[in-house]
Structures are given as C-alpha cells and as structure tokens.
Simulated scan of single mutants.
Amino acid sequence: MKTCLKLVLGAVLGCALFHMMLTGSPVPMWHIEALENPRQVVEVTDNAILMDDGNRLALPFIKTLPAEHAVFLEALAKGVEVDRDGEVIGLLRVKRICGNDPVVYSKLRVNLSDLAGVLNPSGIDEEIVSADAIEFAQELYSSLSESVRIDAYLLSKMRGMRRLFQNTRDKPLQASVD
C-alpha cells in the first residue's frame, strides 16, 4: 500500500515538475471570464444583432456584420452584454498556441466591434473610420479565412483593430439600440 502511494505521489510530483519546467506553473491553470448581464441573441442580420427582448444592437464602427462567420456566431452563443462604454461584449474560448502556456483553458470577454472588424474589414463604417484606415485593415486582415483559429494571434489582431478604432475619435463609441 505504501509503495503504491509513493509511486502515485511520485508520478504526480514528476508531472507537476515537468509542467513547471515548461510553463513556470506547477499545475495547469484555467482562466474563465463571464458576462455579468448576458442578453440572448435571437438572430444576426447584416447590420444588427436582434435580441430576445426585441431590441436591435448595431455595433460601434461597424456597418456590415460578419453574420455568417462561425467565429462571430460562437462569440454570440452565450449571449452578449453592453458595457458602460456602450461596447457590445461576447465570449470566446481561446485555444493555446504553445505548450509553454500554463493556461490550458481560457474563455475571454471580447469586444464584438473589434472581432467584426477583423473578420470583415470591408464592413467597417467609412463614415466613421477613414477610407485609408479601412484599406489598411483590409490588407492586414484579408488573409483570415472562414476557419480562423481562435488563439492569441486573433486576439492580437483584435487589439490592432481596437487601436485603429481608438484613433478615430470624431464619432461616439455607443452601440445604437432600437
């Protein structure tokens, strides 16, 4: 009995040591964010997200939504919330891109305007964002396919889109609710 316990304990400690050598953490970690007040999505059209209460949400900076894109629909699956800044937030499960990442499961809050801009740069509203900036985004993000992997690379592209939107300050950032 003691030998068996020593073997099991040794195996567990050995795995923890190996994981720590690779990632800096002795145990795998999980990072799960949640929506505080999620509202269920009924339908997505080309220009709005239809909510279960009958409201239509139009995303800031976006005139045409990637309504059929699998990644965008995944971000809407658990509902959305409108934060205090008027931004519409969804959830995405982000995959690891490297075995050195100690976080084995990650579900993050994502800004849907940023995601829509990356997935469909031609859908950015040219009345708010300059034509040059939209052309730049189209060149930068045109290589994304329908089967884009949801990982840190996509998140970095979304941060770039956020910077592009933040440099456009002549229009309000509020989501319009009908």
Rank of each mutant, 00 (worst) to 15 (best):
I62H: 04
I97L: 15
K157N: 06
L13W: 03
I150D: 06
N167D: 11
V41D: 03
G24N: 00
V71E: 01
C4Q: 14
K107R: 14
G86Q: 07
C98Q: 11
V82Y: 09
E127G: 14
L5E: 07
G14V: 07
K95N: 13
H19A: 00
M158H: 02
I89R: 03
E87K: 14
T45M: 08
D53I: 09
F72N: 01
M158Y: 06
E139A: 14
M21A: 13
R109A: 05
I150E: 06
D85F: 15
V80Q: 05
L76Q: 03
S145Q: 10
L108K: 15
E126C: 08
G160K: 13
S122G: 07
P28H: 01
F18S: 07
H31L: 13
E43W: 05
R163H: 11
M51G: 04
R93F: 12
L5T: 08
V41E: 00
W30V: 10
W30H: 12
C15Y: 11
R39E: 04
Y153T: 09
I124N: 01
M1L: 07
K2Q: 08
G79R: 10
H69A: 08
N111Y: 02
E36T: 09
H31Y: 08
I97N: 15
F136K: 11
A58F: 02
P102F: 01
V88T: 04
K157D: 04
M29K: 12
Y105C: 07
S122Y: 06
D101Q: 13
A116R: 00
L57G: 00
V118Y: 06
P28W: 00
L5A: 14
E139I: 07
T23A: 14
E36S: 14
Q138C: 15
K107Q: 12
R84P: 01
R109D: 01
S143P: 02
I32C: 08
D85A: 15
C98W: 12
A16E: 03
E81T: 05
L92Q: 03
V177H: 05
R39P: 00
M1P: 04
D101P: 11
S142W: 11
A133N: 06
V82G: 02
A67I: 04
N120M: 14
A133Q: 11
P121Y: 08
M21C: 11
S25G: 12
A133V: 05
A175R: 01
G54S: 08
I32T: 10
A75V: 04
K2S: 09
L5M: 12
I128E: 08
D85C: 14
E74G: 08
T3Q: 09
D170S: 14
N100A: 14
Y105W: 10
W30L: 12
A116V: 01
